[in-house]
Simulated assay, not measured.
Amino acid sequence: MSGRKPAGSSFEDWVERQVREATERGEFDHLPGAGAPLPGLDRAFSADRWAADKARREGFDVTGMLPPALALRREREVLLRDVHQLVSERAVRDVVTDFNDRVREQYRRPADGPLVVIALLDVEALVAEWHRRRPPAPAPATTQAPPVRGVRRWWRRIRGSHPQ
């Protein structure tokens, strides 16, 4: 590619010539996706969809882009899947209670779009599931003190007396 556009040509002509010359040199041959249709041409353009697709390609979590009701629904799925990773029964109860409070609050607000049904979680059922899926705790190591055999006390060492 030449560095600068010549003064006498239009920008469009200059770009077209560069593309044509690169094609003649074969620089576009064997590129990944060559000959395949471009994805998404059958859908109307949406800035939101483009941003979500870009975030997915870059490996970002797109749940922050979801409407609140859908984000809660996604959070429920993740919570049900990963409840066993919480560290204590108290943590399970706190997380589930917080989730249920936010679902109730979502139902109290006017709907921004279509109604998304989000079921409340049963705290006791999830605590039981947490107990069931937890790995068993390692058995405590039993350490026994060595047997005491003829131990001389410090005062006996000083006096020179031995136990009998």
Rank of each mutant, 00 (worst) to 15 (best):
R25D: 11
G26E: 14
E27C: 15
E27T: 15
E27D: 14
F28S: 14
D29E: 12
L31E: 10
L31I: 13
G33Q: 13
G35P: 14
G35W: 08
A36V: 10
A36L: 11
L38W: 07
P39Y: 01
G40L: 01
G40A: 06
F45P: 07
A47W: 04
D48R: 05
R49H: 06
W50S: 03
A51C: 04
A51F: 04
A51N: 01
A51P: 00
D53H: 00
D53L: 00
K54F: 00
K54A: 03
K54R: 09
E58Q: 05
E58D: 10
F60V: 01
T63Y: 07
T63W: 08
M65F: 08
M65R: 08
L66T: 04
L66F: 12
P67I: 08
P68W: 05
A69M: 06
L70F: 08
L70Y: 07
R73S: 11
E75A: 09
R76M: 09
R76G: 12
E77V: 14
E77F: 14
E77P: 04
V78D: 14
R81A: 12
R81K: 15
V83R: 03
V83D: 01
Q85Y: 08
L86W: 06
V87A: 11
E89Y: 05
E89P: 04
R90I: 03
R90Y: 05
A91W: 02
V92Y: 00
R93H: 01
V95L: 06
V96C: 01
V96R: 00
T97W: 03
T97Q: 04
T97L: 03
T97I: 01
T97H: 02
F99Q: 03
F99C: 00
N100G: 03
N100F: 01
N100M: 03
N100S: 03
D101Y: 02
D101V: 02
R102T: 03
V103A: 02
R104S: 05
R104C: 03
R104V: 06
E105D: 09
Y107K: 07
R108C: 04
P110S: 06
D112A: 05
G113H: 08
G113W: 04
P114L: 11
L115S: 09
L115M: 07
V116E: 07
I118T: 07
L120V: 04
D122L: 06
V123N: 04
E124L: 06
E124G: 07
A125D: 12
L126P: 00
L126H: 06
V127G: 05
V127I: 08
V127A: 06
V127W: 03
A128E: 11
A128Q: 13
A128P: 02
W130V: 07
W130Y: 15
H131A: 13
H131K: 10
H131L: 09
R133S: 15
R133Y: 09
R134V: 10
P136G: 13
A137W: 13
A137Y: 13
A137K: 15
P138H: 09
A139L: 11
P140E: 08
P140M: 12
A141E: 09
A141L: 12
T143K: 11
T143I: 11
Q144R: 10
Q144N: 10
A145Q: 13
A145I: 11
A145L: 12
P146G: 12
P147T: 12
R149H: 08
R149M: 12
R149C: 15
G150I: 07
V151C: 14
V151L: 09
V151G: 15
V151I: 12
R152S: 14
R153S: 15
R153A: 10
W154A: 14
